[in-house]
Nucleic acid binder design. Structure first.
Lengths: 339, 339
DNA sequence: TATTGGCACTCGGGGAGTTGGAGTGCTAAC
DNA sequence: GTTAGCACTCCAACTCCCCGAGTGCCAATA
C-alpha cells in the first residue's frame, strides 16, 4: 500500500506538471506545497512512486512526470471534480437557446464543448438502435424516385432517395405510406423488419415490386444505425498544444478524422465514475492516440442513453475541468432534448 | 519585358523547389536543366527575376525561393495542366459508384479529392439560390410540431422542425401541403416569397395563424441559402506538411475550421483559366492563410454552377497536379449529379 | 523507524567558437 | 550577351564546455 503522503506528492506532481509543463523536482515541490517535511523526504516518496510506475524521470537528473498509470490513479482517487464557474455555466445556458432541430442542437453542443475545454470536442449522433419509429414519409421526388424520410422518437430524421426503376404512381405511393405507418409507427427499430413482411400482400405484381424496393431501402436505413456519425469541433486546439505531443500531431489528427476509429473507441467506453468515462494515453488501443486522453459521457433522451459526447486532448490535460465540462454539457444536452 | 530564358529559369526554380523543398541555386539549376549557358549567366537571370520580385533569397548566401507573385506567374503562364494518370482516373470512376443521395455523393467526393491530392479537400453544398422548388412536404412529427421538408431541383433536401404553438390538425396540414405545392412547385427560390403572400386567404383565423407560422419558417429556410455549408476531408494532410508552414499550422487549421471564412473565400473566387480558380499565399485576405494556396472549381447541375469544391495546401504545392485533380473531380461530380 | 542534511554524481541544455560548403555579386575578359 | 574567376557572406553543423537542477545514497538525528 502506498502511504497517504506519497499520494499527496503524486497529486502535487500531477497538478504542477499540468500547470507548468515542466518535469517537477523535489525542491520545487516543497516550495509550492506545504508538506511539512524536507525535500529529502519527498525524494524518498518519489522513489516509491517511481517504483510503482506512477511517475517517471525523462532522464537521470530531471524532475518527474506522471505516467499514464499515475494520471489514472490521480483521476480515480485524488482529483475532485471542479465545479464550473459562473461564466461557464452562463455560456452553456446561452449557447443552446433557440436551436430547433437535432442537427442544430448537436452542432451547437459540439462547438460549445470545444470552446469550454479548449480541446477537440466530439458529439455522436443518436443511435437508431434504441429508438422507435415515429413516422415514415414517402415523397415523389423525380420521375422514378421517391424520397423516404424516417423520423424516430429520438428526434432523428433520416432521409434517403430510393430509385424505383419505374415511374412513380403518386396514388399508390400515398397508399403505401399509409400502410407503412400503420404497420410500424411506434414500433422499435429492432422490430421493424418483422412487421413489414406481409406489407405487399394483396397488391398487383407491379406494385408489389415497388413496395419491395421501398421496404428493402427502409430496412437498410434502419439497419444503417450502425453506420453512425460523429461531429467534431476545435481541431485547431490540437495544433495549439503541439508541444504536448512528442513527434507530431499528425497521427492524432489522422485518428480523429477517421470516424470508424472514433466510433469504435467511443463504443468501448463505459461510464465509470461521475457518469464519465476516461481513456488515458496508451489505455487507448490506437497507436495514434498514445499521447492523448479521451473524456466521454453519455447523453440521454427519455431516460435512456442514446449517444455519447466528449473531448480529446493531450494526456497532460486538466482532467478536473474537462471532466466537469463534459459532464455538464452532457447533462444540459439531455435536458434540452427532453423538451 | 522579361526575356524567355529568364522565364524558363523561373519555371525551373518553381519545379525544383516544389520537388526538393530546398532553396535552389544557380549551380544545381544548370546541372538539372539543359539551358546551354553557364551558371554565371543563370545568376544574371536570377538577379532579374529577383528585381521583378518573382523570386526571393531567404538570406544572402542561399538559393532562391519563388514568391507568391512568382508562383502566380508560373501557374498563369508557365505550367501545363498535368493529365491524370490511369490509376487516378480509375480511382475517380470507382469512388463514386453506388452513392444514391446528395449527402453521400458529396461525402465521397470530398474524401476522394483529399486522397487524390494529399491535401485538405473541401466541398461546398449546393446553394439554394439558383435552384427552384421541386416539392414541399409537411409531416406531423409531434403534438405541436411539423417537420417541413423542402426539396429542390438541385437534389438538395432541407428539413426543419416547425413549432406551431398549437395542436396539429392533420387534415389541415394535408390541405396546406397541397396549397403550398400548387403555389410554389417549380418556382425559383428567389420568387417563392411573392407567390406565398395570399396563401392564407379564405382560412379561419386559427388556421391562418398556423399557416403563417409555417410560411414564415419556409421563407426562413429558403433564405437560409446564405447559411451555406462546407465539408472537409484530409485535415491531417496539413500536419504532414507541417514544415511547409513557417511557425505553426495552427492558424491554418483555425481558418479552415471556420466555415464563415471558407465560404467567404470561396465565394470571392471566380473561375479563371481551365475553369479553375486559384489563390496563392497572401492573395488570400486571411492572415492565417498567408502561406497557403487554394484551388477551387465550380460544379454544375443542369448546366449552371451550383457550388464549388477545391483543395487547400501550402503555397509550395504541386499546382499542376492539384489543378487537374480539382478540375477532374468537379467534372465528374457534375456528371454524377446529371443522372 | 522516519526524517533530515550533506554530498558526490549525472545529465541535458545552452552558449561560444570553429569550420565547411553552398551560393552570391561583381568584374574583367571573351 | 556570356563567361570564368574570385572574394565575400552566411547558414548549418559540429565540438567543446560549463552550469545548474535534480538525483540517490549515507550517516546522523529525533
Amino acid at each position: 500500500m502506498i502511504p497517504d503522503r506519497s499520494l499527496e506528492v503524486l497529486r502535487a506532481i500531477v497538478q504542477d506538471y499540468i500547470a507548468s509543463k515542466e518535469p517537477v523536482g523535489s525542491k520545487s515541490l516543497v516550495e509550492r506545497h506545504s508538506f511539512g517535511v524536507s525535500a529529502a523526504t519527498i525524494r524518498n516518496d518519489m522513489a516509491l512512486l517511481e517504483e510503482e510506475e506512477l511517475i517517471h524521470a525523462p532522464h537521470t537528473s530531471a524532475g518527474r512526470v506522471p505516467t499514464d498509470k499515475g494520471y489514472r490513479l490521480f483521476v480515480d482517487r485524488l482529483s475532485e471534480v471542479k465545479p464550473l464557474n459562473a461564466a461557464e455555466r452562463h455560456a452553456i445556458e446561452n449557447f443552446m437557446v433557440g436551436s430547433a432541430d437535432l442537427d442544430e442542437t448537436l452542432g451547437r453542443t459540439v462547438r460549445l464543448l470545444s470552446q469550454l475545454t479548449n480541446q477537440v470536442a466530439m458529439v455522436q449522433y443518436p443511435t437508431l438502435g434504441k429508438a422507435s419509429v415515429r413516422h415514415i414519409e414517402l415523397i415523389p421526388a423525380a420521375d422514378t424516385r421517391v424520397l423516404m424520410v424516417l423520423i424516430t422518437d429520438s428526434g432523428r430524421i433520416q432521409q434517403h432517395v430510393v430509385e424505383l426503376g419505374a415511374a412513380v404512381d403518386e396514388a399508390f405511393i400515398g397508399e403505401l405510406r399509409a400502410k407503412l405507418n400503420t404497420a410500424i409507427a411506434g414500433v422499435a427499430l429492432t422490430e421493424v423488419a418483422g412487421n413489414l413482411k406481409s406489407i405487399a400482400s394483396g397488391m398487383n405484381s407491379n406494385n408489389t415490386k415497388i413496395a419491395n424496393v421501398i421496404v428493402k431501402n427502409l430496412l437498410e436505413q434502419v439497419d444503417a444505425n450502425r453506420q453512425e456519425k460523429i461531429i467534431l469541433s476545435g481541431t485547431s486546439n490540437l495544433a495549439k498544444r503541439e508541444e504536448d505531443f512528442p513527434g507530431s500531431i499528425s497521427p492524432v489528427l489522422e485518428a480523429i478524422e477517421e470516424q470508424v476509429v472514433l466510433l469504435k473507441l467511443i463504443s468501448e467506453m463505459q461510464a465509470e465514475q461521475h457518469g464519465v468515462s476516461l481513456r488515458i494515453g496508451r489505455e487507448n488501443q490506437f497507436e495514434g492516440l498514445a499521447n492523448a486522453s479521451v473524456v466521454v459521457s453519455g447523453y440521454e433522451n427519455q431516460g435512456s442513453e442514446i449517444a455519447k459526447l466528449g473531448v480529446i486532448g493531450p494526456t497532460r490535460m486538466d482532467y478536473s475541468s474537462n471532466i466537469s465540462a463534459v459532464r455538464a454539457v452532457a447533462r444540459y444536452l439531455t435536458k434540452t432534448l427532453g423538451n
